[in-house]
């Protein structure tokens, strides 16, 4: 693990501490050991991450907009007296590398319109879709592309 990414994580944890304590300088008596402990355990639990930070800035607005639409979509279906749903279970072959990117994809999918990840197997994501008539496949592919860029990898081709 590179020194730079340890430094970045240290800054992130210090930022969280600063937020929690409202920037109280006296709190660092506890804050410094706490941040150090959190950092050590974090490095032990998550040895490497290769998030591309500037891609993150592109991903966030995309995700916020799509998850807002996800909420609106499901709220509409729930309140509509006819309850327009046609659920189905669907296996999506993952082209992302295993590990963090696949888990990130699984978690993202659950907050996007009409999709809920129900099982993560080796290179396959079981997705429960609320409306099997919609274009969820295109959506999943788009998300996968973006997650790949976020982690600085490319998708496998079959």
């Amino acid at each position: 693990m590179s020194g730079l990414s340890i430094l970045l994580r240290g800054i992130l944890f210090s930022l969280i501490w600063w937020l929690l304590t409202d920037g109280d300088t006296a709190s660092w008596w506890i804050g410094v050991p706490a941040v150090a402990l959190a950092l050590i355990i974090n490095i032990a639990l998550l040895p490497s991450s290769n998030l591309v930070w500037h891609e993150f800035l592109i991903f966030v607005p995309f995700f916020l907009l799509r998850s807002l639409l996800g909420g609106v979509d499901v709220a509409r279906r729930a309140i509509d007296p006819r309850m327009p749903i046609a659920p189905a279970l669907f296996e999506y072959p993952l082209r992302l590398p295993a590990g963090m990117p696949q888990v990130f994809m699984a978690n993202t999918v659950s907050l996007l319109p009409g999709t809920l990840s129900a099982e993560l197997c080796t290179n396959c994501l079981k997705v429960h879709v609320l409306d099997s008539r919609g274009g969820f496949l295109a959506e999943l592919e788009a998300v996968e592309q973006r997650v790949a860029r976020l982690f600085g990898t490319s998708l496998k081709t079959f």
Binding site: W17, A34, V35, L37, A38, I41, N42, L45
Partner: peptide, 17 residues
């Protein structure tokens, strides 16, 4: 778990303070 445990440690320290 891997993501949350460090945050939980910080939260515990915050609650203590």
């Amino acid at each position: 778990t891997r993501l949350l445990v460090p945050v939980l440690i910080l939260t515990a320290a915050y609650l203590l303070w």
